[in-house]
Amino acid sequence: MKANKGNKRSQHQLFELFAPKMLSVCRQYIKNNDIAEEVMLSGFLKVFTHLNSFKYEGSFEGWIRRIMINEAISQLRKDKKMLFTDEKEIENSKDFVTYLETELEVEEIQKIIDGLPEGYKTVFMLYAVEGYKHSEISELLQISESTSKSQLFKARKVLRTIIEKQNILNYGTH
């Protein structure tokens, strides 16, 4: 891999290929577009300086994606925006799975997600979009698994409320 040896042209090609997707990942966690781009650039800097760490075990895109998520979480932690309240409301988390009448456009989805508190949003995105387990989330965010579960429950509850307000629900609670 030429980018591994510091070849600028190769690095530029990699950047052109993955930057749009990775900026979208960063934007999921960071509300501000400019800050999201700064986080993405910081993530690419790590990608290019740690290319030797990539073991070719998984997909290269998946490896870059994980770096971007870590950078976004570091940024949120730095801004002290992530607050996790350790509440024990995890029993009926699945009751708050929301069903829609029609598909939402991505801009609408982003708007709904941006309405969530940072702690809820981060756990929800890691669990629902990235497919992380609660054990992985607890390790990444340095919280307990029960906190992760309670944050997910609360995120789902708030999302339902937002969507109800927009009158786009299909059947409501199942």
Binding site: Q28, Y99, L100, E103, L104, E105, I109, Q110, V129, N170
Partner: peptide
């Protein structure tokens, strides 16, 4: 019915 979480995953990815 469309599951909200499946919808956002597909769209955001």
């Amino acid at each position: 019915p469309i599951k909200f979480e499946d919808n956002i995953r597909e769209k955001l990815q």
